[in-house]
């Protein structure tokens, strides 16, 4: 006997779970923090990026996975991943991406967000970027001697001795110098960088 619709009590039927609400705030945040038009929301999850990446095998997540995780709002997992730090900026992914996503630029953004949030497992990458940038900001030029010694003392003190022939060779071949080069317009450069950081802060 068929039930007549009048007899069905809709309230008594088992309820389906509520569909999850898409939280795109992390995607928006990453896009907003990436200068230019990164086109990250256009990703179609084809995986060409990871297939073209020379260090994908050493990454905890391939670029494609990272982009899916960004869309899923998994900000903590994304920023803790070693993936952006293993990006060698070879741009293979970017030229092969059918959607023309600016993948290396997204990786730069993820690194900067991870540094800000203090979310990274291995500090070698973040410290290298910060030490390098610190010298550039201080002198206007990169300072390889300071960068190499400081970075090695901090992260590879044991292998310091093994690196001695390399450092010594760089010095005797005059490919490295003890003294940094300073630009004339240092004051102006510092003002420009300070203003850029203020603007970056305001846009967050």
């Amino acid at each position: 006997m068929a039930l007549s619709s009048a007899d069905t009590d809709l309230e008594s039927l088992p309820r389906l779970p509520e569909p999850p609400v898409a939280d795109l705030s992390f995607l928006d945040k990453v896009v907003a923090a990436t200068p230019g038009v990164p086109r990250l929301e256009m990703c179609i999850q084809c995986g060409t990026c990871g297939g073209s990446c020379p260090s994908a095998a050493d990454m905890e997540h391939t670029p494609r996975q990272i982009f899916a995780m960004i869309r899923a709002g998994m900000s903590d997992e994304v920023l803790r991943s070693n993936t952006p730090w293993f990006c060698v900026a070879c741009y293979y992914c970017m030229v092969r991406c059918p959607q023309e996503v600016h993948i290396p630029d997204v990786m730069y953004t993820l690194k900067s967000l991870a540094i800000r949030a203090g979310l990274y497992e291995n500090a070698a990458g973040p410290h290298l970027s910060q030490t390098f940038s610190g010298y550039v900001e201080k002198y206007g030029r990169s300072f390889e001697f300071g960068l190499a010694t400081r970075h090695y003392l901090r992260h590879h003190p044991i292998s310091m001795r093994g690196m001695a022939p390399l450092g010594l060779g760089m010095l005797t071949k005059d490919r490295l110098t003890f003294t940094p080069v300073r630009i004339k317009g240092l004051k102006g450069l510092k003002a420009i960088l300070a203003r850029a950081r203020e603007l970056e802060e305001a846009a967050r």
Binding site: D105, S112, S133, R195, E200
Partner: peptide, 25 residues
Amino acid sequence: DDWNCCGATEFMSVSPLAGHALIGR
């Protein structure tokens, strides 16, 4: 005249916008 470092791949990893400003100079 009086050019500065382009920031290589490191400056943008700390602050993308300041990295572009550095190159912009």
